[in-house]
Amino acid sequence: MSRLHARLLHFAQTTIQPSLTSQIRTMSSYTSVHVGKPDTLDYKVYIRDASGKVISSVHDIPLKPEGVTDKHVFNMVVEVPRWSNAKLEMSSKFPFNPIVQDTKKGKLRYVRNLFPYKGYIHNYGAIPQTWEDPTFVDPNTSCNGDGDPIDVCEIGEQVGYIGQVKQVKVLGLVALIDEGETDWKVLAIDVTDPLAEKLNNLADVEEHLPGLIAATRHWFRDYKRPDGKPSNEFAFNGEAKEADFSLEVIEHCHKAWKEGLLTGTNPKANYDNTNSTLEGSKGFNPAEADKLATDGVVYTHSEPVGDDKWYYYKN
């Protein structure tokens, strides 16, 4: 078995123990390197691994944290911190898929402040090594995939930062239909969050964070309306689906990444597949990584000044 196949098949299914949260915190040894000035076309955020090597945010970061066997725990790359407005995403065009700001007709894109919210209402990002295949018509939604890694809405209390690699517990998802494409939105919580051990399903989310699921539907339904676009629609009449259903969707998207995107064999494979660690894959080119992000600023996260957490109360 090749090293690549061994990494891709290294998954088990047991339940995470509370003591693992400290181990996961230690294992999150990625750093983000910011190149260029924010809010410009030149801005890029690369991710380095523990050795200091630039890696692909889409391809090199494993689907699941190494050594963690809980079937509900995955890696997540934070693209957009909560409360911010710049529409940032892992680039499909640049080698190693740095996080860049999306553009339309040459102009940087931002989401509007949709009352009563400020910017994005979650720590928003994606699960690496996944891909929503645009050639696949999902039987649950009757729509093709949107051609991106599967999106994650992390609902913990701490605001994340661009390029942060979180380990999150999957709790459910909603099936957004965005301009006629399937655009899954996974609901998850950082495993080190104070509420992580109490949240295991959608009922737990509603109990401890009342109104959050409804607010998620509202925000994704209408966030484009300030730009003059119609409301988005949802499959399942907007009903959020539970964690086990979510795992099936994630596994399907992981297979699509492995067999179609990473190999470049899918006719609509749209992400540069250059990577540093997947020896034997088409895009394996660690030497190319040595040329990147050498003049960037390594981001060091610090606790925010003041209170930027959120609070939930039942009437």
Rank of each mutant, 00 (worst) to 15 (best):
P226S: 09
S91Y: 06
D193K: 03
H59M: 00
L108M: 09
G306E: 08
D151N: 02
F220T: 00
E66A: 13
E79R: 03
R112E: 15
W219C: 08
G67H: 07
N273A: 02
S57L: 03
I61N: 01
P62C: 01
S29R: 13
K64L: 07
D49C: 12
W257Y: 01
H252R: 15
K309D: 06
F115E: 14
K87E: 03
E154Y: 03
S28H: 12
E181Y: 00
K53C: 10
G125Y: 04
E66T: 15
D308M: 11
K268L: 12
V174W: 02
W83D: 14
T277D: 03
A287T: 11
F234S: 10
P65W: 03
D138G: 05
C153S: 15
F11P: 00
V35K: 11
V152P: 00
Y311P: 07
G163L: 07
T216N: 11
E179K: 14
A269D: 01
S57P: 01
Q13S: 15
T141K: 11
D204K: 10
F236P: 03
K64E: 04
L20Q: 15
P304T: 04
P139N: 09
N315S: 13
L247R: 03
E207A: 14
E279A: 11
P81D: 04
A235W: 08
G119N: 02
S2R: 09
V152E: 02
G180K: 06
